[in-house]
């Protein structure tokens, strides 16, 4: 197997590669040395082809029916095995519920420490910054171990530029008999949406509790998102009161986003929410309360009632076409 320094875990939704997981390539380039990509799943041959132009020393593919679902016990075992075989010292992934489930388990199998949500790599790749306390503080951390596992924040590392070089594919043999079977997949309930993925969208519209009911939330937040071709997000309060599903939640315990444009509707700006949006390039806040903390970090602030302002804004955006 091709030797490498950094092994990058790629995430996909069984159809295609999740774009943010490629941002780890940029992090690997900053770490220096060779990097390889690792793709696990069932019947992922087509997807593998989309990963050959990112300058990786090799693309390792573990393709087996028993890996159809990302069960942590099996995945961590296969990942740890691949890591050892390719002689890597760093296991890298992009923060998501997929990687946060699997990477720490792999770290334990590798007897290695891990850092979550790495934002910058400093000091010859031995020092890292990461947010703590809901993003209210940034910690600088060093690792005292040759082997290490890192998950990076996609919003803190650029998307890699495509490369014409073609990485070789290496198939990893998977022995189904050796896979643990203490975890069984039962079902999945995912929203089918025409809107872009929250963590990948260029424009995100977020809504808070003042949106009152689900109908209003869908009409105003959804309406504005559609007018801009954007994704929908929500505060914890909006999710807790049933205005939006939990996977729309942005913030410390939800998703961290970094779109070109974030529009906050009726969001006062709890620190946990602000932690999830602060890397957005442009932030627009529309809120009735002129003292709402979100105005402290908004690029453009409009004091007004969302119920009145948002229909106007949707109208104005339609007119522009």
């Amino acid at each position: 197997m091709t030797k490498t320094n950094t092994l990058i875990l790629i995430e996909h939704d069984r159809q295609q590669v999740k774009r943010p997981s490629l941002h780890a390539v940029t992090a690997a380039q900053q770490l220096g040395g060779d990097y390889s990509l690792l793709l696990l799943g069932s019947a992922v041959g087509e997807m593998a082809k989309s990963l050959l132009g990112y300058g990786a020393a090799s693309l390792l593919v573990a393709d087996h029916a028993e890996l159809a679902e990302p069960l942590a016990d099996r995945y961590a075992l296969v990942i740890a095995d691949a890591f050892q075989k390719c002689g890597a010292t760093t296991l890298l992934g992009t923060s998501s519920t997929f990687s946060k489930d699997i990477l720490p388990r792999a770290a334990a199998l590798l007897d290695a420490p891990m850092l979550t949500d790495v934002m910058t790599i400093e000091g010859n790749g031995n020092s890292f910054t990461r947010p703590i306390n809901a993003g209210s503080m940034i910690a600088t951390v060093q690792l005292g171990s040759e082997r290490r596992v890192l998950s990076i924040r996609a919003s803190a590392f650029a998307a890699p530029t495509g490369n014409t070089a073609v990485s070789p594919i290496e198939q990893l043999a998977v022995d189904a008999a050796l896979l643990p079977n203490g975890m069984q997949f039962v079902s999945r309930e995912e929203r089918i949406s025409d809107r872009p993925d929250l963590t990948e969208a260029r424009v995100v519209v977020g809504g808070g509790r003042p949106l009152k009911d689900k109908e209003t939330f869908d009409r105003l937040v959804g309406g504005l998102a559609d007018a801009l071709g954007g994704a929908i997000g929500a505060t914890r309060a909006a999710v807790d009161t049933g205005l939006a599903p939990n996977d729309y939640q942005i913030g410390q315990t939800g998703k961290v986003i970094a779109p070109d444009l974030y529009i906050a509707l009726g969001i006062s700006g709890a620190i946990q929410h602000l932690a999830g949006i602060k890397d957005s390039r442009v932030i627009i806040a529309i809120n009735k309360d002129p003292d709402a903390p979100i105005f402290q970090m908004a690029t453009y602030a409009l004091v007004g009632d969302v119920h009145q302002v948002v229909p106007e804004l949707i109208e104005a955006l339609r007119d522009r076409e």
């Binding site: 290695a112 420490p113 850092l115 020092s127 947010p131 703590i132 993003g135 209210s136 503080m137 940034i138 910690a139 600088t140 951390v141 060093q142 690792l143 005292g144 171990s145 602060k278 932030i283 105005f295 402290q296 970090m297 908004a298 690029t299 453009y300 602030a301």
Partner: peptide, 16 residues
Amino acid sequence: LTRLSSTARPARRSAG
């Protein structure tokens, strides 16, 4: 195996 060397407040976005 990890060592916390410092903590700092993140750069604040300024109000626009």
